[in-house]
Each structure stands twice: as structure tokens, then as C-alpha cells.
Amino acid sequence: MNIFRLAGDMTHLLSIIVLLLKIQATKSCAGVSLKTQELYAVVFVTRYLDLFYSFISLYNTVMKIIFLLTAFTIIWYMRKHKVVCQTYDKEQDTFRVLFLIVPCFVLALLVNHEMSVTEVLWTFSIYLEAVAILPQLVLLQRTKNVDNLTGNYIFMLGSYRALYLVNWVYRYFTELGYRQWIVWVSGTVQTCVYLDFFYYYVQAWRNNERMKLPG
């Protein structure tokens, strides 16, 4: 494992911790999209089915379990915690997730490495992850003012993807015969989804002010 991959994973983990801490400390999930969090849970469940039949490393297994547990913890807070769930912007978080899930599933059936249940579900999880942030970005656009923690959460999620891109370039030049087109193309799309957000995030940071999205 190279340094870019490790940095990517750690940024991903940190983004989730930041979100969980925000929810726990402020007892509020205002500005957080439950749809996006549920999509991530679907992504992790369909991708990490290999926990049952393949072992790569202790690091790999532990990280997968952490991602699964934290995803369901966040959903639990937003749906069941009696204080936190009242702060959820249900009326604003109206993205139709089936418009993401169905096309990703069809694409996974058409473009995959192998026509098996686990391989198609794994491919589906790769496609779905690329667009899972969209409900969150739409919610952000609607509520306009972005609180610092939510902004940092999304910024770290985007950074994690950017670090994975660098990791793939590094692996391409250092590992003989290493290529994974499905992951590369989806990952590039996923990183591009964040570009607009990055622009406004960096602008707010440079001007030392609270982040605002244009109407």
C-alpha cells in the first residue's frame, strides 16, 4: 500500500468521524442529507460482501467493518435519535435516489468483469459511490449557508477521492499489469462531481469567511 492510498483512506475515515462528531456534539444533523448517508450504506454493504469469502489484510477487514458500522450509526442518529432526528431537513432532502440506483444497477449489469451476483453488486457499488454525494450537494445548494463542519465533511470526502486518483497513477507506474478501468473511470467521475464545491470551499477559506453557494 502506498502513501497516497493510505492518506486517502485516512481522509475518508476522518470525514466520517467529523460528521459523527458534529452530530454528537451539536445534537443536530441540519444540512446533512440522509439520502446520501443511506446511499453510502448501500455502497458499503454491496461492496464489502467479500468480507464473507475473501481476506486481504487485517487493515482491509477492520476498515471495512468501521465504514459499515459508522454508516449505520449515522443513519440511526438521523432516523431514531430523539433529539437529532428532529433537526433533519426532511422537506429539503427530496432527491429521488431511484434515479441514481436504477441507472447504476443497469450499468453494472451491462459493464462488469464477470456476470456473477457478487461481481455485479461490487460493480454497482463502484458506480453508485461516484454519484452518492449528489443528494448532499443538492441539499447544500438549497439551504445555501453551509456550516463549517458539513463543509469540511464534504471537502474531506472530495479529497479522499482525489488522493485515490493519485494512488492509481502511482500504482500504474509501479505495479506491472495493474489496471482497473471500471474503478478508474468511475473514480474520475466521482472526483469531478466535487470540483464545483471545491471552488467555493477554497474561495471561502481564502477570504476567511463562511462558505456560501451561489443561488
Partner: peptide, 10 residues
């Protein structure tokens, strides 16, 4: 051809 490579990334 398309070979499923080892899924060592998260």
C-alpha cells in the same frame, strides 16, 4: 480481456 483484479482497495 476484462479480468476481475484483486479488490484490495476500499
Amino acid at each position: 480481456g476484462a479480468q476481475p483484479c484483486e479488490k484490495d482497495e476500499l
